[in-house]
């Protein structure tokens, strides 16, 4: 079956099978920032944004993305034009092996969109669905709190 969707701002039309998952579709299309981990919606390395909300692409049917907009880590920032979340992760040395990083960036994007000024506890809670076996989370927590500050500044202290 055919579906229409937008991937990182680019409208696409693509052929899928009804039982195919969004993760498979995205990697087939070359978005390798989306990782395969547990395949059960538990580890979060496959996290992408579906209409701006973080979801596990490994248990989302590709068909569910029809007429919707998907954002992968590739669509959040580029090496030349990093998103504040990506900058903060670099500055804090929050990524080690890096396998969980794209998922955490997508998660943080959704989370900070809903809660631009979170407490440390809220950040830790938001990270529940993203396993990281290297860092112990501390640096990610610091980076996301820092990113929140940078994003508030960019949005012009309008509050």
């Amino acid at each position: 079956m055919k579906i229409k969707l937008t991937i990182n701002g680019v409208p696409r039309e693509t052929e899928i099978t009804p039982d195919e998952k969004l993760l498979g579709l995205l990697r087939r299309e070359g978005y390798f920032g989306v990782k395969f981990g547990c395949g059960r919606g538990e580890c979060g390395v496959c996290t992408v944004l579906l209409d701006g909300r973080a979801v596990n692409s490994c248990i989302t049917f590709a068909a569910q993305a029809h007429n919707r907009s998907v954002t992968t880590v590739e669509g959040i920032g580029t090496p030349d034009n990093l998103h504040p979340i990506q900058e903060a992760i670099l500055d804090h040395g929050a990524a080690q092996c890096g396998y969980c990083t794209p998922g955490i960036i997508c998660l943080a994007r959704d989370f900070l969109d809903e809660n631009p000024d979170p407490t440390e506890e809220q950040v830790r809670d938001a990270l529940k669905g993203n396993l990281c076996r290297c860092t112990g989370y501390q640096k990610y927590v610091e980076a996301i709190l820092d990113a929140a500050g940078r994003m508030r500044k960019l949005s012009g202290d309008s509050g």
Binding site: G41, G44, L50, A54, V55, N56, D110, G129
Partner: peptide
């Protein structure tokens, strides 16, 4: 509501 699974699951 907030005790359900993870943010990613709650979004779907």
């Amino acid at each position: 509501v907030l005790s359900v699974a993870t943010r990613q699951i709650r979004n779907m």
